[in-house]
């Protein structure tokens, strides 16, 4: 589903955020992406969502070479990828319902279908009772769950999360990870960047470790990973 082949990303500043990264993930696989701050975790996720372009090498997503995706096709590529951010990126002048509905509205789903799917997604993250609330009135954990509902509402085959538990206490973090496991069980390919090593240890999944832009470890053996 995701395949990096000797991928490098050099920012316009000249700084190399990623160098020669190669790995691949099958459809329905789940993996954590760790590494020190500035190691290139966010950069890697941005390449998959085409928020940035690789300067060298090849990124393949769902059988498609992202180097060949024209700028007008980028929106259609992004619809296949749900993205979750540490800062949630919700719109504060819209209700929870409207925030979650955004991916459906941009892809032109009917009103009935939108209502049905938004409620299903909110139900999954346990926020059905908050659909009319504004994000500002929600706790950090609730806001993050709204962000997650938005990422999965259109049932994308790939979900990327960049520090989804960054600001949450361990209890809430665990809850969110359980949610991710559930998505993975229905076949979603998940790549989660995080600092939270304790949490990764509990989850017992594949771990990709970046160091200074290079992939320094790729293992399912947790003893080896840390």
């Amino acid at each position: 589903m995701i395949k990096f082949d000797n991928v490098s990303k050099r920012y316009t500043s000249g700084y190399e955020g990623l160098s020669n990264v190669s790995f691949s993930m099958e459809a329905g696989e789940m993996a954590f992406l760790t590494g020190h701050s500035g190691a290139g975790k966010s950069t890697l996720l941005k390449l998959i969502g085409l928020l940035e372009h690789a300067t060298r090498g090849q990124v393949m997503v769902d059988g498609r070479n992202l180097g060949k995706v024209k700028s007008r096709q980028i929106p259609y590529h992004r619809r296949k990828i749900g993205m979750i951010f540490q800062d949630h990126r919700l719109l504060h002048d819209r209700t929870v319902f409207d925030n979650v509905a955004m991916p459906l509205i941009v892809s032109g789903a009917s009103r009935a279908e939108t209502g049905r799917r938004v409620r299903a997604a909110l139900d999954k993250v346990n926020l059905l009772n908050k659909e009319k609330a504004y994000p500002i009135t929600l706790s950090g954990g609730e806001q993050q769950r709204v962000g997650i509902a938005r990422a999965v509402v259109s049932k994308p085959p790939v979900v990327l999360a960049d520090e989804p538990t960054g600001n949450l206490d361990p209890e809430l973090s665990k809850e969110i990870m359980e949610l991710f496991l559930q998505f993975n069980q229905v076949g979603v390919t998940l790549l989660i960047a995080t600092h939270d090593i304790d949490l990764v240890k509990q989850m017992n999944q594949r771990v990709l470790t970046l160091g200074s832009g290079q992939l320094i470890r790729d293992t399912t053996n947790l003893q080896e990973a840390f």
């Binding site: 929106p75 992004r78 955004m102 991916p103 941009v106």
Partner: peptide, 11 residues
């Protein structure tokens, strides 16, 4: 954010 969730330019 609208671009992030896959909105086309014309949208």
């Amino acid at each position: 954010i609208t671009k992030l969730v896959g909105a086309t330019n014309s949208f």
